[in-house]
Computed example of a mutant assay.
Amino acid sequence: MAQGRSAPLPFDFRRQFVDRIVHHVEKAIIGKRESIEMAVIAFLCGGHVLLEDVPGVGKTVLVRALAKTADAAFKRIQCTPDLLPSDVTGVSVYNRQSGQFEFRPGPVMTNILLADEMNRASPKTQSALLEAMEERQVTVDGETYRLPEPFLLLATQNPFEHEGTYPLPEAQLDRFLLRIRLGYPEEKHEVEMLERSQERNPLDEVKTVVLREEWLQLQREVRAVHMDDTLRHYIVRLTSATRTHPDVALGASPRASLSLMRTAQARALCSGRTYVVPDDIKQMAVATMAHRLVLQPEARYTGKSAESVVRQLLAAVPVPATQAASGGSR
């Protein structure tokens, strides 16, 4: 495929794209198809993902498997309290021979970056990724350097172990397109995992199935998926409702509205449609919005969660009646 291709890809190819990625990632992560599909949706949107769950459920394996399916550069950083911003973005080094400073890029100069245990990095180092996440660039010693295209950050964190960690600030959480939780596998899937891992590493079975140009082309096509005006109003009503909910101290930002629109478009494309339906929005709302909400202290003390608030609003906000885009799904 030629780079910069503008002709839409066939619908059968779009379905095959998602199926190929999911099939190969499932060779390493068993029984978590919904979480894998969520990661693929972020992949299509070019958005960043926060994988939040207890240790040992496969967060890092999921990222490595997803990265192996794409013909793209992949790098990993292990976040620790002594990790410096320059360890992430890169550093300018003086060259005695030329008499000039030369930029030596850090691991952020890649297509897919895994920030493992991101909440263990200091706030100063966490902030070094803010510009990269939003602007797709980094600034070192006054010079700005563009990141490769595409660029995708997948960060992991353990929500239960807080000793020696630095909670991600709201400004950084808002830059994650999705928050995904894997959870413990079912017993049958855990037994299958043991069987597969007995004599080999399941990651060795994951192959590259998507070219970089195909990835970029599908990201462009996500933006072209039709969304009815009534659905845009529906998204805004949902996000606005979080700002007035009595259990919420800080509601969803306009960036959340944009993210929900993008993820709904991507879900429609994965389903082989050229238009968004209300169910696309409802299916993506929790993963897109919940991590952006800050609950009132009394709500947290009574056991309420941001996810339950979003589900409550999905049940309360009326779903509009829409007409599918002309031409159907083809």
Rank of each mutant, 00 (worst) to 15 (best):
M1S: 15
S6W: 07
F17A: 13
K27M: 13
R33I: 11
R33Q: 14
E37F: 04
I41C: 11
V54F: 03
P55S: 09
G56P: 08
A73G: 02
K75I: 00
P85Y: 02
S86R: 03
V93H: 12
Y94F: 15
N95C: 07
S98T: 15
G99Q: 06
D116V: 10
R120K: 11
A132I: 03
E135P: 09
V140T: 08
G142F: 08
E143C: 04
L147T: 10
L147N: 10
P148M: 05
L153T: 01
E161K: 08
D174T: 09
R175I: 12
F176E: 01
P185L: 05
E190D: 11
E190Q: 13
Q198C: 10
L203C: 11
L203I: 11
E205V: 04
V209E: 02
V209P: 10
L211G: 15
Q217S: 13
Q219A: 11
Q219E: 04
H226Q: 06
H233S: 14
L238P: 04
T242H: 07
R243C: 10
D247A: 13
P254S: 04
L258P: 01
A266F: 00
P278W: 07
K282E: 09
L293I: 11
P297F: 10
E298L: 06
A299F: 03
R300D: 05
R300Q: 13
S308K: 13
V310C: 12
L314G: 06
P318I: 12
P318S: 07
T322W: 05
R330Y: 12
